[in-house]
């Protein structure tokens, strides 16, 4: 049940193990930069520009579509600068750690019955676990830069990401209880075949029955992505980019790709958990039909969730650090606990 299975199924050939591994790596390695590019272009450049009554990039390619490629090329040409007092090894590794954490999430995201890199029984558990690896990279970057702004940014990020891990996981708990599984594939099929209190018109997308969970998940994701209103770790007007401040060239590009790649991954997780993933509530396209149409269905849902995430980003001012912690501990976590209790009661009663 992997991406290699899809290939072998489609081509009707047996794929050897080494070839399967290459295909998997290739898929993940292709998907992330593409995802970062798409999100970066659609939302960071165009949606933000339209919200701010300007056009955004218009010169590189039709409607500026190639702008991010041009930017990426520009980053690659930049000098790779190490600050004089930086811890060189840690400084060099930090962006990779962030990027790897992003890569690892993609491994379990299903885009069809077979179209998944690795089918894990504990998929959602794994995804949330590897996503929190990025905090290590951020802390490394903040510490190794030998810069006070970077250090403050790194520490802020650590405090923030740890505080928001909890509501993130607790919000997912409701879904897991309702679906009765940690397997992302089964969560998708449960939603497609489920029913809401006996009504099976549109299956059971958990956004309806787990709306509180969806809301908490989105807020926590916003904080995990360090986007406004939770962008204190990179707050430009306070600490000038935080942990990114000393990075140039392709290392900065890694952070950029990590940021948008993670945004894409979390949007994908949200659409798997709450919007029914690759499945459609009506119309069964069959096993192979979903393997082919699944990625497209996913993309639509992911873009919808991303639009929501980025809409917040361009609209809200920034909270203060203590206000952020207060929101997490005094509001989101109690709310998600209540959500779990209510979900549990319904699960037992119904």
């Amino acid at each position: 049940m992997t991406a290699a299975t899809v290939v072998s199924g489609l081509l009707a050939v047996e794929v050897p193990y080494w070839a399967a591994s290459i295909i998997k790596v290739g898929v993940v390695a292709l998907v992330i930069p593409t995802a970062a590019l798409v999100l970066g272009y659609v939302f960071l450049m165009k949606m933000m520009s339209f919200m701010q009554s300007r056009l955004g990039p218009m010169e590189a390619g039709p409607y500026g579509t190639l702008q991010l490629l041009a930017d990426g090329l520009k980053f690659l040409q930049k000098e790779d600068i190490f600050p004089a007092k930086a811890d060189r090894t840690v400084f060099a590794l930090a962006p990779l750690v962030v990027l790897i954490s992003t890569f690892l999430i993609y491994v379990v995201i299903p885009t069809g019955p077979d179209a998944v890199v690795a089918q894990l029984d504990v998929g959602i558990f794994y995804a949330l676990a590897v996503s929190s690896l990025s905090v290590v990279g951020i802390l490394m970057a903040g510490w190794a830069s030998a810069n006070k702004y970077a250090l403050m940014g790194g520490l802020r990020a650590a405090g923030q990401l740890i505080a928001y891990e909890l509501p993130l996981v607790l919000a997912v708990m409701g879904v897991v209880i309702q679906a009765g599984t940690l397997d992302l594939q089964k969560i998708v099929t449960t939603q497609a075949t489920g029913e809401i209190f006996g009504w099976d018109g549109i299956g059971n997308p958990f956004i309806l029955t787990q709306f509180a969970g969806f809301f908490i998940f989105l807020v926590a994701v916003q904080a995990e992505l360090t986007q406004p209103p939770f962008d204190m770790p990179v707050a430009e007007s306070e600490i000038v980019g935080g942990y990114q401040v000393e990075y140039t060239g392709f290392r900065f590009l890694f952070f950029f790709m990590g940021e948008f790649g993670t945004a894409f991954a979390f949007a994908a997780l949200a659409s798997v958990l709450f919007l029914g993933g690759w499945a459609l509530p009506w119309g069964d396209l069959g096993h192979w039909g979903f393997n082919i149409a699944g990625p497209a269905i996913m993309l639509v849902k992911v873009l919808a969730v991303s639009a929501l995430i980025f809409w917040f980003r361009f609209t809200y001012p920034r909270l203060r650090e203590d206000q952020l912690q207060r929101l997490a501990w005094k509001f989101l976590i109690p709310l998600s606990l209540v959500n779990i209790v209510v979900t549990g009661i319904f699960k037992v009663v119904l």
């Binding site: 933000m48 007007s237 361009f314 609209t315 001012p317």
Partner: peptide, 13 residues
Amino acid sequence: MAVQLGALTPVFM
């Protein structure tokens, strides 16, 4: 002042 507080959009308006 809005952009100092992290809201990107108002300054363009």
